[in-house]
Amino acid sequence: MELTTVWFILIAVLWTGYFVLEGFDFGVGMLMPVLGRGGDEHGEVRKRLLLNTIGPVWDGNEVWLLTAGGATFAAFPHWYATMFSGLYLPLLIILVALIVRALGFDYRGKVDDPTWRKRWDIAIFLGSAVPALLWGVALTNVVMGLPINADKEYTGNLFTLLNPVGLLGGLTTVALFLTHGAIYIALKTDGDVRHEARQLSIKVGAVAAVLAVILLVTINVSTGSAASWAAAAVAAVALLAGLFAAFRQREGWAFVGTFVAIGAAVATLFLALFPNVMTSTTNASFSLTTTNASSTAYTLTIMTWVAAIFTPVVLLYTSWTYWTFRKRISAHHIPVTSVGIPSSGAGTLS
């Protein structure tokens, strides 16, 4: 296999890893107002329960995005340059969202003040919902094609992206991540929250299934290959199987289902895109491909060695983290206050 193809696959794997992992923590963030409802003490415990399901892992999940970005830069500089400069404003919005979301996780429990927490709750919700939507819009547009000129430059604007298929892509990722997040919560908690989350996952999952089928069929009709049709079929079957498992109260299998479904859906997009990396709607010959956008064979060879050696190491310790925090948590595991929080009044330097 050519190295450019290898790297296309690796980058697809990194994006897939990003969406199957960060997908559930986006879902948890978006479900905070629903499953963590209530401004009283009870609601606060529920919110903290939800946050603590993803506490130890969301940061590692986000690194998949950084690695995908870095790998795209290294292996396909033109892809990186065209995509990141072309999707300028959506990426800016995503950056702001990811910033406030991460700080929300880390800072919301550090001051014992309802107003403080409420503000960070909004940050966590928007910081999860906005990227969930915009990544779907962006990726769908990349696969369906964008106006790109002979110099590999994007010539559209923000509104070019807000076309019906692009928006459908965004809604699909939101629905899929909500389902994935709800099932993750059902898998990681015990008590009321667990049961509510599971029931919710089936309802949202049904919507996600309809949206995903329409989206993947639309994309495959437009630019699909035999492989991308097959991946779409896997996605559909896995999602339905996952929802059935949720219905049967088998949360572990349900999570496997949504995990595979999101993975296969992302794979569908990349298989439909291949061998292009950015499709030009202006003129097919202006499209960026794995060949004309790539780095040299020398750079790709070095990167292949690095990836071959270190990716297994990363996967190993990532799995170990998930193993370490494998136990379900319930309301009685949540300590009264976050440890070490300064009581009000102590917080003055004089």
């Binding site: 506490g55 130890p56 892992v57 940061d59 590692g60 986000e62 690194v63 950084l66 690695t67 970005g69 870095g70 790998a71 795209t72 830069f73 290294a74 292996a75 500089p77 990186y80 780095s295 750079t299 070095i302 990167m303 690095v306 990836a307 270190f310 990716t311 990363v314 310790y317 990532t318 983290t321």
Partner: peptide
């Protein structure tokens, strides 16, 4: 691009995972 990608793979995963 290569050092940036390697930085993410070798360093960012290590820092984020083990800090968690």
């Amino acid at each position: 691009g290569a050092p940036l990608a390697i930085e993410a793979l070798l360093a960012f995963f290590l820092e984020s995972t083990f800090l968690g």
